[in-house]
Design a protein around this nucleic acid. Structure first.
Lengths: 139, 139
DNA sequence: GAGCAGATGTAATAACGTAACATTTTATCG
DNA sequence: CGATAAAATGTTACGTTATTACATCTGCTC
């Protein structure tokens, strides 16, 4: 995995988004985790250092990071993962292993739009597959 | 739309699932709604009649209905919709209009599995597209 | 009718997320 | 530089979503 933080810095420099110390810290925490992270877990990790973190602190940082394309929200888990490739847009397809919690992200240009109803305009897609990754033993 | 309740009765008779009065009532409420329904909205609708409904009441009924393939959970909305065709499995693709809240469900045999990682076994998929349906005006 | 399994009732609380307003920091421009 | 406007963060409070744990009831089987 290439350095997510460097990638994020470059991406934000390019787009003009402001990756402040707080946002950077939240991204680091999300990126370091080897599994989707919960907002309140981030909150308690931040608290260890700064003592002033409250829910809006972390949710605002996450909103920014999602908007910037640096983090994805895993809807069915109420959790968050770092995007391995900054700014790939919102076309991510996530494969979430229910055994080891590892998440693999792949890209598709118009993923999952089987039999799209006539005239429907897709603005945002949520595509999450849950199961077992190759490394986890079958039950 | 063919009668969802008849469909549900037939489906449960076939599979041996017990569509009790409470579960049936919850399914009716979900099916009547023209948009995804929140659990606590169901709760207050049930309360009007029985006065004894508490959160577990409705969540248990919803769990049963989802398990039985009669209801889908819309993950990104924390809400629920009736499945138009009982027991179609968990391969549903949902198109959710953000303007009128209407949900169209289509079926795909292996929807959304673009570039599936080698060896990954999918057990359950969440595929939700958000945007504007054909009937809603473009901004 | 004793015993069991499944379903439901009930109380309490955990987990997730946001609104509203105060304060601080940073950018901009005269 | 200093005014001022915009963006970010701090803070309090609360709203929403969901679960745990245990009690009770209902219908079935023997």
């Amino acid at each position: 995995m290439p350095d997510i933080m460097e990638d994020a810095d470059r991406h934000c420099a390019k787009t003009g988004a402001r990756l402040t110390p707080l946002r950077r810290r939240v991204l680091e925490l999300v990126a370091q985790a080897r599994a989707p992270v919960k907002a309140y877990d981030l909150l308690s990790q931040i608290d260890r250092t700064s003592t002033s973190a409250k829910p809006p602190t972390v949710y605002r940082a996450l909103d920014f990071l999602i908007e910037a394309g640096l983090v994805h929200r895993v809807e069915a888990l109420n959790a968050f993962v770092a995007c391995p490739q900054a700014g790939h847009g919102h076309a991510a397809v996530l494969y979430v292993c229910e055994s080891c919690a590892n998440v693999t992200e792949v890209q598709g240009s118009r993923p999952g739009q089987e039999n799209k109803p006539a005239g429907f305009t897709v603005k945002r897609s949520v595509i999450e597959h849950y199961g077992l990754c190759a490394d986890c033993p079958r039950p």
